[in-house]
Nucleic acid binder design. Structure first.
Lengths: 241, 241
DNA sequence: TGATGTGAACTTTTTCACAGCT
DNA sequence: AGCTGTGAAAAAGTTCACATCA
């Protein structure tokens, strides 16, 4: 709906600098990036699609197609230059721009995320913490003092927060979300098990831990693993009406 | 991959307990379940596909198709009986059988998950905690004492743990995973950003928080939102070869 | 020779649209 | 009249297989 023209892709070609990337490929590219980074640390300078695909847990054809959305940085008969690939995946994922995270809801989970080393390690520094609990306000968590949720719009705008992480209880989540949006935050990672209503230009990703367990439960039963009887078939007579 | 088709699509009438459920539908069914449960608490006894789909954030045709995998429990012209639907989704997801969780790695995140109310609330009691840190062994976390990771196989077997949650640092994750598998655990929720190697009959789901942020980052850049310059276009000369 | 890059085939998932029931 | 249930169409995603090139 809303198209912001802060900058455009002025390649001379009317299209994007990268061809459009399928949604499914984006998540995998982030995984390749991690594998590559770790390989580079071990001194690996070249990798074949077969090896990288194995390490990332995907089919090698899928990997090659995914990388083709980034560009052609492989050498036939040799493989990919790891450093070069990292550089281009990072650019594609927008990791070359400044990011800054706010965590809202400093309970057990929020506390853990405020201290999660994977965020700053991956270029996402946590720069603001919020809660409603007066006893928490001003208390430093991971070196950063907690502010009141009422100050979300002002502080997020001031600190140029780009991603909001919601770890509040369900009833508070939508309100907090609205405050983040008011503060200019356009990306939200939501741990509250509720579907948030947001404007079209805001992207929400939900991480629902109970849902993950339920999916695992389904597969276990389907497979007939574990203790106890496998699912009893539904009585066809009870089903029909 | 094991194919477990109980029957074939021949005459239009099948003898399956449930027809085979697409992977994508399973996750959504878990979401519908939560919405329904919350609606029932508010006294709602009937819902239309349109309303339920709205609350779950999906298209109503998708919802109806998903529910058709569970069976036909709607009434035309009226909608779905919420209680009945909950009952059948729970059965399909295997939530009627006993589940029991072990959390391995009692750092910040493990601590938070050991206390996460959403697990027991959703029928997944945490019944074992493990770590390597001698200072933690025996210390109760959320009322449950921490055991040493070496005792994972024995304790998991004894307590009939069905799901293992891995919150260890990356280097420890694969070893812990092997111990869980040795203890008879066939479902693993992995928070360590590494691809685990497991036997074919073990199901792993990975939750990678940094990947979630990177996906959000991608969308923000694509949209041209936020502060700062949009991605610099790649030099077309460098792209072509 | 050996590995990439990709069109084509295939599979899965989503959406449409409407027949059929209540 | 209104809403479900589902075939059929469309879209998205995955895998194959091989031409291509270092």
């Amino acid at each position: 709906m809303t198209v912001h023209e802060h900058g455009r892709y002025s390649t001379g070609v009317e299209d994007l600098p990268y061809r459009s990337v399928p949604e499914a490929a984006v998540g995998r590219l982030a995984v390749y990036l991690r594998v590559l980074t770790s390989m580079i640390e071990q001194g690996v300078t070249t990798m074949s699609s077969e090896v990288l695909a194995g390490a990332a847990g995907v089919n090698s054809a899928t990997l090659r197609k995914d990388l083709s959305y980034v560009g052609s940085y492989g050498t036939r008969g040799v493989g990919y230059d790891t450093a070069r690939l990292v550089e281009h995946i990072e650019r594609l994922l927008g990791l070359t721009r400044h990011h800054s995270i706010a965590v809202v809801g400093i309970g057990n989970l929020g506390h853990a995320l405020a201290n999660y080393p994977g965020f700053p390690d991956r270029g996402f520094p946590v720069t603001a913490l919020f809660d409603v609990d007066e006893d928490l306000i001003g208390v430093p968590v991971g070196g950063l003092p907690v502010d009141h949720v009422d100050s979300i719009p002002a502080i997020c705008a001031e600190r140029e927060v780009t991603i909001g992480v919601i770890c509040t209880p369900v009833p508070a989540a939508q309100g907090v979300c609205d405050l983040l949006v008011a503060g200019g935050v356009r990306c939200i990672l939501n741990f509250a098990p509720v579907v948030l209503q947001v404007p079209d230009d805001v992207e929400v990703r939900r991480v629902d831990l109970a849902v993950e367990l339920q999916i695992l439960s389904f597969h276990q039963v389907r497979r007939g693993n574990g203790i106890g009887p496998v699912v009893e078939p539904i009585d066809p007579i009870a089903v029909s009406r």
